[in-house]
Design a protein around this nucleic acid. Structure first.
Lengths: 238, 238
DNA sequence: GCAAAAGTGTTCTGTCTACACCCATGA
DNA sequence: TCATGGGTGTAGACAGAACACTTTTGC
């Protein structure tokens, strides 16, 4: 990891990403537990190199934690109240215990400032992601959005607003497919929609609506071994 | 104006506002011509005090230029490609001519950095605004959005994306009334919509749709002196 | 009375919803 | 043959578009 200084990174500005995955009929969010021996949970985030565009920086942060390169990623809002500070991290740095920071003095100076954060959200196929740690992470895990722990600063609010943005855009921009594997059944697609909107849809009408969009390609049937009609598999038509 | 330094303001971060007004059936945008003797046009912008939230800072910038306090103001996107620099301003500063900058050296250092800008857009009743200059403005004027000059950096693109956001939100959030005076006729409201979307609407259907929203209060008739039926005046029901 | 603009009503159409029915599958 | 879940059809409700008609105003 590079040093925290204004030659390397833009000061007082960070990027935090709400990375959505979908598993077991539940939306999940990738959460980092920080490597400080205290229960500090944060969104995957990072800083912006002086020679990087913000989209580029967000993409790099994502790649560091997920290993993925081609993913849906979109800026949704910038957060910057006057008192937005990293107090929990500062508290830890103040305690003179060893931390994973290479230059403690520079780190204290860096994190003692008030920060503005550009919020991004990403949609990934959870099966393709092996969460990867950086130097500052104790662990990085998928947690169900319904039962997130208390996150640092305003990160819980950032998740909430990212979810609202996702709901607004899921239909409009047909981005839901980014959360599913390559092929899926109509039921799986519907369950994803129900997880995002947290409400049920009528099965027959949902099917009609999805098919009328003409973005799905119907593949062969999927024989599950269950005692019922085998559903078709579908693929998103690029 | 305060000095340009990181104690006072957050470095490398600015706010630029697309302030929409409506006049003569055309959308207008408030544009500043900078006080440098060169034709440098910009959006009204400014920096973020260390002790100000970003919404607060945007509101203050708006108040400086328009004199208004209670206005519709919303963040819409943050712009930050790697090469986003204030080259035209730097060129002027390089020429050793007198400029309105209090501390030329500090200004050069400040503006030579790459900047990230948080974009806000605002809707105001154009009749209530007396555009006000700051130290750096030669003039501040309402220009029709259809015929803007070439603006500094990516400000033309910022206007375009603000307009797209306005179009998405005009109906959804019923914010159009912020562009009109207290009372207005149905025709005036329709002409506003037509200016924003740059397309015509059917008169009768438009009326029905607006009335069905149940946000308009019908007042007395407005006798214009013209040889036709007098239209009703309406007011937005808060 | 006439032209111009405002206000309202009617029909048609496409979309969304609710209900109903049939089909394939494995036990 | 039966239960289970998948796929499709149809009728009613509703909103938007297109067309037509009436009313008000000043000349």
């Amino acid at each position: 990891m590079n040093q925290f200084n204004p030659e390397q990174y833009i000061p007082q500005l960070s990027i935090d990403s709400v990375i959505f995955g979908y598993r077991k009929k539940q939306l999940h969010v990738l959460i980092s537990k920080m490597n400080f021996g205290h229960n500090i949970y944060t969104l995957p985030g990072g800083f912006i190199s002086q020679d990087q565009g913000i989209d580029e920086a967000a993409l790099q942060i994502l790649k560091e934690r997920t290993g993925l390169k081609d993913i849906f990623l979109e800026q949704y809002k910038t957060f910057g109240p006057a008192d937005r500070k990293n107090n929990p991290i500062l508290d830890v740095l103040d305690q003179d215990k060893p931390t994973p920071m290479p230059d403690e003095q520079a780190a204290v100076e860096w994190f003692s400032k008030r920060f503005i954060s550009i919020g991004y959200y990403a949609l990934v196929d959870i099966n393709k992601v092996k969460p990867q740690k950086t130097d500052l992470d104790e662990s990085v895990d998928w947690l169900p959005i319904e039962s997130l722990p208390s996150l640092i600063m305003d990160h819980n609010q950032m998740v909430q607003e990212a979810l609202e943005t996702l709901r607004r855009n899921l239909d409009e921009k047909l981005i839901g497919f980014n959360l599913l594997p390559e092929t899926f059944t109509m039921r799986e697609l519907q369950e994803l929609y129900e997880a995002v909107y947290d409400k049920a849809f009528a099965r027959n009408n949902f099917q009609k609506k999805m098919l009328s969009l003409e973005v799905l390609e119907r593949l062969e049937k999927k024989f599950t071994g269950a005692a019922n009609k085998a559903p078709y598999l579908y693929r998103f038509r690029r």
